[in-house]
Design a binder for these strands. Structure first.
Lengths: 145, 145
DNA sequence: TATTGTTATACTCTATAACTATA
DNA sequence: TATAGTTATAGAGTATAACAATA
């Protein structure tokens, strides 16, 4: 079971990375774009903390997304040390395209299962014991390395 | 589904790496030890090809396993350019210990499922479509990077 | 001329810790 | 004194290609 899950997980991550390549981003950028959609006006540090991404890595990721116009750094209203990260309209478009690719990976992965089987598989996977504790739901542990 | 599988796969790989650390080896070494158990007298190159490990990486992996006495390089009987890799008795012991750890990871992962559920989960996972084609069964695609 | 194993080199990635400007 | 963001630097890991010995 462990081997199958590890192998499939690796393949899926690779497939997502391959799919995102034409957009000029990688899976961590997608993770960041997704959280920017739901958080408005949070500081770079707070966002990094919630994804478990170190401050120096955040600089690189945010620099790259800013360079392609996907987000803007704005002054924090009450703390002049901090930046507030805002998704731009171009960033929303990019996120939508990236999510389309992610769903295509999902569809490919599950193409041999009918909806009832998918639901059952998800339920069983959810009952596997994740050996890495303390990772918030929706956060990929690979982001922190 | 893709996210869950990727996240679990990452966690499982990390758990195995953590478990193997006291033995002084990493998951790729375990992959190599396992194949050495079933192949007798094959050349370093042939074994690397079957695991999709580049020749220069094989040198490092084999050097490390030789340094801890887990395998021996012997002259190939008919080709004096090539080495034949042989598991030593110490290597067999190491492999047994490593497999014990791997099975402990497996048990932890599946501890909330009864045997029937495990079988069912394995069956469903086996029907997921691996997006990386051409990887032989039993070979982890992460070995090739 | 091609192949086995090895080494060298350049490149990328990461991780720690310094640094600045604010608080 | 502590914190947000940034930069510097050193270490690890990776990948390409060169290399010597042999086929």
């Amino acid at each position: 079971m462990a081997f199958v899950v590890s192998k499939l997980g690796y393949s899926v991550s690779q497939a997502l990375a391959d799919g995102l390549r034409p957009l000029g981003i990688e899976p961590p950028h997608l993770g960041l774009l997704r959280i920017l959609q739901s958080t408005a006006g949070e500081s770079q540090r707070a966002i990094g903390d919630s994804l478990d991404i170190a401050p120096n890595r955040m600089v690189t990721l945010v620099d790259q997304l800013e360079a392609i116009g996907a987000l803007e750094r704005r002054r924090h209203p009450s703390d002049r040390r901090a930046w507030t990260l805002m998704l731009t309209p171009d960033g929303s478009d990019l996120l939508a395209q990236a999510m389309t690719i992610a769903f295509a990976v999902e569809d490919q992965l599950c193409r041999n299962l009918d909806p009832a089987e998918r639901k059952q598989l998800l339920e069983l996977l959810g009952r596997l014991h994740d050996p890495i504790g303390g990772v918030p739901a929706g956060v990929h542990p690979g982001l922190s390395r």
